[in-house]
């Protein structure tokens, strides 16, 4: 992967956004509600279509591709609110994720090693799991595609703090070997703790960009809330 350059033209939620991501980098996107974070991820994932040149992945234009084509190129999404398939079991949800048939280290066994609880529950209906376990299924399902870039949309949403800590503890194991990640998160400290660089969005524009460990709290809250 030579790098991902994303340029957004003018459309409802995002205004001429420029951002890029290098191979193996973990990027955090923070911002208030309605700042356009989810729109950004959905655009990258192909759920919102753009001009072909608006988004480049490994140098080739992917902005106008359908979601399933984007997935085939190695971009996987862990969607907001988990979006599991309720009539399928845990294992079937994971198998669906592996359907794109990309080669790589992630398999059912690898996902079960990462989240052992899922192995115990693998034949249960996905709806019978707790919120945190469902989130593990959603992450595992995305990993099954062996993506080069994984997109996390609000993985801490609606979960208990202790569960959030567990899931964040697992993240380095996921993105450790060269996989890039974009993390959209409302929980700023969690987002900063696992990412190398951070973009702050405000009303569809980038209001702050920098290395995660170099940014001052003050600057972030200014960029976050738009207070001068």
């Amino acid at each position: 992967m030579t790098g991902l350059d994303a340029f957004y033209g003018d459309f409802q939620a995002l205004y001429g956004l420029d951002l890029h991501l290098d191979a193996g980098e973990v990027l955090a996107i923070i911002g208030a509600n309605g700042a356009g974070k989810t729109t950004l991820l959905r655009s990258i994932a192909g759920l919102i279509r753009n001009r072909p040149e608006a988004i480049r992945f490994r140098g080739s234009p992917v902005g106008a591709l359908r979601a399933d084509q984007v997935a085939g190129l190695g971009i996987a999404l862990v969607p907001e609110g988990r979006q599991l398939f309720p009539s399928l079991s845990v294992e079937e949800n994971l198998i669906i994720g592996g359907r794109v048939g990309r080669k790589g280290p992630w398999s059912l066994d690898a996902v079960y090693r990462l989240f052992p609880i899922l192995k115990e529950r693998r034949n249960q209906a996905s709806t019978s799991l707790s919120g945190g376990q469902q989130q593990m299924v959603a992450i595992g399902r995305a990993l099954m595609a062996n993506p080069d870039l994984i997109l996390f949309d609000e993985i801490s949403l609606g979960l208990a703090p202790i569960i959030i800590r567990d899931i964040y503890a697992a993240l380095p194991g996921i993105v450790g070997d060269g996989m890039s990640a974009i993390l959209v998160e409302q929980d700023i400290s969690k987002a900063l703790s696992v990412s190398s660089r951070v973009y702050c969005l405000q009303e569809g524009r980038v209001s702050l960009e920098g290395a995660s460990d170099a940014l001052l709290r003050e600057a972030i809250s200014r960029a976050y809330f738009g207070i001068a």
């Binding site: 759920l47 979006q83 398939f85 309720p86 359907r99 399902r141 595609a145």
Partner: peptide, 24 residues
């Protein structure tokens, strides 16, 4: 079959199915 699994996934949640690489 695997295609049947994909079909069930589409019925449950079209957006999630699409972002997992299923051509709806």
């Amino acid at each position: 079959s695997r295609r049947g699994l994909a079909l069930t996934a589409i019925r449950d949640n079209e957006l999630a199915a699409a972002s997992l690489g299923i051509d709806i």
